[in-house]
Design a protein around this nucleic acid. Sequence first.
DNA 1: GGTTGGCACTCGACTCTACCGAGTGCTTGC
DNA 2: GCAAGCACTCGGTAGAGTCGAGTGCCAACC
Lengths: 332, 332
Amino acid sequence: MLDDRKASILRAVVEEYIHTAQPVGSGHVASAPGVEVSSATVRNEMATLEHDGYLAQPHTSAGRIPTEAGYRYYVDHLAGRGSLDRASAQHVRAFFDRTHGALEQMLVDTSRLLAGLTGTAAVITGPPQEIAVVRSVQLVGITARAALLVVVLSNGAIHKATVELVGEHPEATDEDLTAATAHLRRHLEGRRLDSLASVPAPADAAVARLVAAAARTAGADGDHLYVGGTDRVAGAFDAVETVREVLGVLEQQLVVVSLLRDVLDRGLQVAIGSETGLENLAECALVLSPYEVEGEPVGTVAVLGPTRMDYVQALAAVAVVSNRLGRRLSEG
Amino acid sequence: MLDDRKASILRAVVEEYIHTAQPVGSGHVASAPGVEVSSATVRNEMATLEHDGYLAQPHTSAGRIPTEAGYRYYVDHLAGRGSLDRASAQHVRAFFDRTHGALEQMLVDTSRLLAGLTGTAAVITGPPQEIAVVRSVQLVGITARAALLVVVLSNGAIHKATVELVGEHPEATDEDLTAATAHLRRHLEGRRLDSLASVPAPADAAVARLVAAAARTAGADGDHLYVGGTDRVAGAFDAVETVREVLGVLEQQLVVVSLLRDVLDRGLQVAIGSETGLENLAECALVLSPYEVEGEPVGTVAVLGPTRMDYVQALAAVAVVSNRLGRRLSEG
DNA sequence: GGTTGGCACTCGACTCTACCGAGTGCTTGC
DNA sequence: GCAAGCACTCGGTAGAGTCGAGTGCCAACC
């Protein structure tokens, strides 16, 4: 825990650095509001803060830069939870009032909205389909050996999975498909999708094979990810290599989804640099907020930017968007 | 039309510039294979080529750089249609042998494969759903005023659209939905999706409203776009602003889809710089190739890179991938 | 004793200069 | 018509000098 003076000095350094992206000197800090001491005193304190690991010096005779620990302390203790400015808040409200149509498109648009609010890339994981209620089930034959399981969920999402029939008697007749569809419908409609895995086997052997194959696809069509504002990444880092790495990460949906899950599981709202656990994101920070539908958290809204992003702004934006998104999905 | 000597000089400049990204001087050109004259002669010829608009000089006393017209002449007359190197060809073959499962994931993976082959971003438009044959139709109620139209197509794709009921009697009962589903099924299954727009109206008024609303969604779920290798964009241009612009374009699916369609309609296989018609892509070139399923072109495979991309390589990669992709989709 | 003003020192950023070399255009000779 | 030679251009680089923001430390002060 830092005493008041050190805290306000750290805050001044972080906020100034976020603003200017330049190392911050004792002079600037001394003239910052909330710091009422001379630059000499600030220097002494900054030396201590550096020794304690909150600040770093790019080189002698340069100003200080926050370390990961510095940012961490800042978001944990110093960054007041502000709210969005009027115009942005209005913009968000208008967006959610206006938006309509398919879930997917809405999430794509939402990620772009969030990117616009924060000036960084934004990602959103779709509500997991496992917990949604099944409205309709259908097993459609595509080829003799493959069928498509299409499940319409109450939130307007569609779960689809290829059902492959392997084994000695792979062929399935249309009658088998119809029977299997009827069976699945009986045991699934009105229930949650995750009960797909535990649908009882029907009497007929051929139908049972189909149902079992369909059941195996439970969870196969994993969480979907919606990414927006990738163009902002280009401006966020000066090293091309970093830009490349970050874009590379964003292309791998699985990696990002498990990253979000992992951070959330650790109870974090903000992951800074190495806290993300991904080497490629060493210079990035992630600000996230789960969103709830009917009181239950079902997905995550997040922002991915450089470590020197505006955390207050990002936290506010992520909070508002996740809140509105959850509300929007609840009423649908 | 250029005489032989000018042509080989232009070729040398283009290929050298593609390789090094540096202005090419008369000395380099003179020592290039295929050019058997002295550098002084080359200088004279290059002056002519510059005057004719094929080359440009960044500044006096620097080498020459190809203009758009230069690249255009190069791809039209000088770039031999090479083929992929053994390893890459093998890689592509292995990919298509190995890949399986849902259409969407396969196209995502294919775009990434293509990006890997060419070192630039790659885009693929999915087969248009209009011409696919309907396997199954279902109208599922989501709320009292909205339903989801889910159509499973023979190629394994799914067409979905939100059906909104507006007007004086917006409510639809489950019976109405069932009746509408049955009606649609009768008139659609086994036919092409684009006949959705011309399904005859059923007798019952409420059902007719539903069917009409569903018919209106024809074509609403437009062509899908799959983008891969966005991270390569970062390395392709030195100006951050350009990177940002290109990424921005790639985020707008509609823009890219119509760009591809437009270029294809003009009968081009390569669009260079301003030929794309997009200001943001002034420094980009697009290399594309339609792919065919059962003899009919159904989608496009393309590569988006800097104007100084390796056109021979890109053309070969795009050709092989579109070919294999078409074959793969035909057999499915 | 904590705080502050003062001071010497450091070191990156910027400017200026000179210079090098790749490249050109032109002229002349073959 | 081609090639060799030559004067000229001009961006890029290297080195010297300067500037200034910033530091650490010390002594004085309240």
